[in-house]
Amino acid sequence: MSKVSFIQEEMAQRNEKAVIGFWIYLMTDCVLFASLFATYAVLHKNTYGGPGSKDIFNLPYVLVETLILLTSSFSAGIATYSAYLYKKAQTVIFLIITIVLGLTFLIMELSEFSHLIRIGDSFRRSGFLSSYFALVGTHGMHILFGLIALSVLVCQIMIKGLNRNVLRRINLISMFWHFLDVVWIFIFTIVYLMGVIK
C-alpha cells in the first residue's frame, strides 16, 4: 500500500470514529438537558407568589424565534450539502446565513431575558423562574458556542479550503446545530406551549 492510500484509509476510519464519538457526546448533552427539563418539571409550579408561566410568555414572539432557528438549521443542512459537492463559496455563504440567523435567535432570546429581568421577574424571583432561566439559558449558551464554532469553521474554510478535516467538522457542527434545534422544539412545546395552555 502506498503512503498516500494508507493515509486515506486512516482518515476514513478517523471520520467514522469522530462521527460516533460526536453522537455519543450529543447523547450526553441530551442527558444534561434532560436533567434541566426534570428540574423545570419539578419547580415550574413553585412560583413563590411571583408570576406563573401563563403570565410571562409571549407566544407569537417565541414562535418567530422558533422559525428563525429552524431556518438556520435548514441553511446549515444546505451548507453541509454544498461542502460535500466541494462548492466552497456556496458553503461559506450558507454558513454565514446560519450564523446570522443563529445570532438573531440569540439576540431575541437575550432581549426576552432582559425584559423579564427589567420588570422584576428575574431568576432570583422564584424556583419556577430559576428553572426557566437555567433551561432556556443553557440552550442559549449552546447556541453561543455553536456560533463560535461556526465562525471558526468559516475562517478555516476560507484559509484552508475544503480539506478532509474541515469537511469532517462541517458535518459534526451541523449535527450539533440540528441537535440544538431538536432541544429547542422540546423547550418550545414543554415550556412555552404547555405553559400557556394550562
Binding site: 419547580l43 413553585n46 412560583t47 413563590y48 432570583r124 422564584s126 424556583g127 430559576s130 428553572s131
Partner: peptide, 8 residues
C-alpha cells in the same frame, strides 16, 4: 432558587 430553603 433551585435548592434553597425559601424562594420556591
Amino acid at each position: 432558587h433551585f435548592f434553597t430553603a425559601g424562594g420556591g
